[in-house]
Design a protein around this nucleic acid. Structure first.
Lengths: 226, 226
DNA sequence: AGTTCAGTGATGCGT
DNA sequence: ACGCATCGCTGAACT
């Protein structure tokens, strides 16, 4: 008997029906089903990272005959179980989080620390996450004659980042505050470059601090050898 | 002994280190590790839908002492295993895909079929996925005096969808082709409405075909039983 | 509760 | 391979 209120691992021959924001069906087959203590439900097929069907934390599961029914905020997953191959209750399960580096936040902090270097001019003040009605500017830098609205991307900048900053510039235009738009990222796509040129946005290549310090380590080794 | 070339389920006390696009560490604890035949790797904690650490299809796994090392395109996950609680090889595992409805494509097709109704005027031609240098317009409708560039969203429209269509309008402005921008979706955010007004974009409320014909009665019956 | 945005986003489809 | 948009995105932060 499956206890649906505890975390479990289930390998079963089953078929799945989902209804909610969208609707989907999965033909009968052997799938892997995991349910976590917080209500999270995942049905995984043999390939791919993302689950075939899923429900985020908060779902309630019930067993009716050979059907497992999970429900959350108007969304329902119905698992019709034909054969159970493996059923395993998961007892001890840690709930730690990863500590992560090289995020956009890291890069933003690095840029703020070296803002005059990257903008190539005197800056009197920088504000992170400056709120506008059209969203928050990553970094707002106050120069002598104008503002600088800077959008930071941790990886490759695409054309939608250009749009993002244009929305912020719309606001500064409204309040008649001269502002230059900037994008700072390690990489940028060709389409974004073209669009930047048309819209008079500047792009500056920046590196993550850890990548920079790796370079300097190489340099030190080089120096030692010289 | 863990066979790293076959799909497996592993419950283990371990610690994880990830290095690649970003870097992360996960303190020692009891986690659930799944590896699929295509190389997919997931490390799941006790809560949340998304994995703590993961690798998409294509990763190669090797066992070195008590370390499981998975590598893919300059990205490495290192699992230091201290104690194995459960190890299970997953033999039969189906690789079917879900068939899904109420996608953006469904909605787009529905709109095209009733384009004159939704635009309230005579339309001589519609083109799906019309290519511009700034991206593809969902629906381009040719009216008597001007074009209509329509962005379709399956659910709630946010401010970034407005930006998207503005990029396409930039192109039509460049080629001096008068074009009206439209957003069609079941819902829209307040911020998007404001920005639409400023930018002279129109929003039209549209419903998914299945919602209109209210044939989701079977779901309601299901919910009643839950 | 609503809105916006980051993400190791992943995934698919186009060039 | 790169570029771009969608996703039942999820999750988090802030209003």
């Amino acid at each position: 008997m499956i206890k649906v209120d505890r975390p479990f691992f289930l390998k079963a021959n089953c078929s799945i029906r989902y209804s909610g924001r969208a609707e989907s069906q999965l033909v009968q087959g052997d799938y892997l089903i995991i349910r976590k203590g917080d209500g999270t439900l995942m049905i995984h097929g043999a390939t791919r990272l993302v689950a075939l069907n899923y429900q985020p934390p908060g779902a309630i599961m019930k067993l009716k005959g050979n059907k497992l029914i999970s429900h959350r905020k108007g969304e329902t997953i119905e698992i019709t179980v034909y054969h159970i191959e493996q059923y395993l209750e998961i007892t001890t399960w840690s709930d730690n989080r990863i500590s992560i580096k090289k995020t956009e936040d890291d890069l933003r902090n690095h840029i703020v620390e070296h803002i005059e270097h990257y903008l190539g001019q005197k800056i009197s003040e920088t504000i992170k996450e400056f709120q506008t009605p059209n969203g928050a500017v990553d970094i707002l830098a106050v120069g002598l004659s104008q503002y600088h609205a800077i959008e930071v991307k941790r990886a490759k900048t695409t054309i939608q980042s250009c749009s993002q900053i244009l929305r912020y510039l719309d606001y500064f235009k409204e309040i008649e505050q001269p502002t230059q738009g900037w994008i700072m990222s390690p990489q940028i796509t060709q389409g974004a470059i073209s669009y930047c040129q048309k819209k008079h946005l500047n792009w500056v290549e920046v590196k993550h601090e850890s990548d920079v310090s790796n370079d300097s380590t190489d340099l030190k080794i080089l120096e030692d050898h010289v």
